[in-house]
């Protein structure tokens, strides 16, 4: 009896996992289409967009390399896209001894559903202790400044995650406009506002 119940539970879990991954991948593809249409709408206003990498390369190859440049009449933006399929999670940009890293941390909400943020000591807060790593990848960020004044280096975060943080020794929250390694961090809406 117990074995049959366990077996049915397992089957439903696996079927759910299959359906959920299908749904997620379709959702992610739609997100990329929306991203592309949002940017291509800018070209009507005389903005030049040049793509350096394909979407598959943006997702699977090393992050932090410049994926596209946007030329407006005033400024040129070199954009590196920071992306992951998991958005109900904390995205963390870390500084190591030699390189920068991009980490996606998912909350383990099935077992510990903790929403209360614990005061000043955010490093040891319950939110972060009940997390597990989804992925870790090295970022190819260049620390040197752009050669001209009207050029900007931008780290575009898309699709927006639940939390975005930066750590070298303690946790700092990142918002649109804050800087990491000479790159300005932007969400898509803020970037579109900046350009227009």
């Amino acid at each position: 009896m117990i074995i049959t119940i366990l077996f049915y539970l397992l089957t439903f879990a696996i079927l759910f996992a299959i359906v959920y991954t299908l749904y997620k991948s379709i959702w992610y593809a739609v997100k990329w289409i929306v991203f592309r249409t949002n940017l291509s709408a800018l070209t009507k206003d005389g903005v030049k967009i040049t793509w350096h990498r394909k979407p598959i390369q943006m997702v699977f190859r090393q992050k932090g390399q410049f994926d596209l440049t946007i030329d407006t009449r005033r400024n040129t933006y070199h954009i590196a896209i920071l992306t992951s399929i998991s958005t109900h999670s904390r995205w963390n940009v870390m500084k190591g001894k030699t390189h920068y890293y991009f980490e996606v941390r998912r909350p383990k909400k099935i077992f510990y559903n903790v929403n209360v943020h614990s005061g000043n000591n955010s490093e040891m807060s319950y939110d972060y202790l009940k997390e597990e790593r989804f992925s870790l990848s090295q970022l190819a960020l260049e620390e040197n400044k752009p050669s001209r004044e009207n050029e900007k280096k931008i780290l575009l975060v898309y699709p927006p995650p639940k939390n975005l943080t930066y750590t070298d020794h303690q946790v700092n929250y990142l918002k649109s406009g804050s800087a990491v390694c000479g790159y300005e961090v932007f969400y898509l809406k803020a970037l579109l506002n900046e350009i227009c």
Binding site: G96, K97, H99, Y101, T167
Partner: peptide, 17 residues
């Protein structure tokens, strides 16, 4: 293997595992 290499050589104390 790469992740464990980064953790051992570059990230050090930042890693929870």
């Amino acid at each position: 293997w790469k992740v464990s290499q980064w953790e051992a050589e570059d990230l050090g104390s930042q890693t929870p595992n």
